[in-house]
């Protein structure tokens, strides 16, 4: 596998919504490259025809009755919100230039 470029690191950081400083990008490039090199050991194994494992325990779909139940009150749900107004969570503008 090709080694990681600075542009790759910046692209992945953007996908992950992580603001990284220039120094962090440099450090990340070195660290990730080392770790990805370690991953190459898996190429030694022929895994054609091997089924992937996502879950180790066998549980079937479990259904419950679809009944209304108590949940957090509006006050409780908002208690940790960094910004709130009139019973709503305040979100930075997503559309337009109202930000």
């Amino acid at each position: 596998m090709a080694s990681l470029t600075r542009a790759d690191v910046e692209h992945v950081a953007h996908l992950a919504r992580l603001g990284l400083s220039a120094d962090e990008v440099t450090r990340m490039e070195t660290d990730l490259d080392l770790i990805l090199t370690m991953f190459a050991v898996l190429d030694e194994l022929d895994t054609d025809g091997i089924a992937p494992t996502a879950q180790t325990i066998e549980v079937e779909s479990i259904l419950r009755a679809d009944l209304p139940r108590p949940s957090l009150s509006q006050e409780e749900a908002l208690a940790n919100a960094p910004e709130q107004s009139g019973g709503y969570v305040v979100v930075p503008a997503i559309l337009g230039d109202g930000a």
């Binding site: 919504r17 940790n80 919100a81 960094p82 910004e83 969570v89 930075p92 930000a99």
Partner: peptide, 16 residues
């Protein structure tokens, strides 16, 4: 993501 709970740093739009 700093919207519903936790530490939040507001910088420009939602992406920022």
């Amino acid at each position: 993501d700093g919207i519903r709970y936790g530490r939040s740093v507001r910088e420009g739009d939602v992406l920022g």
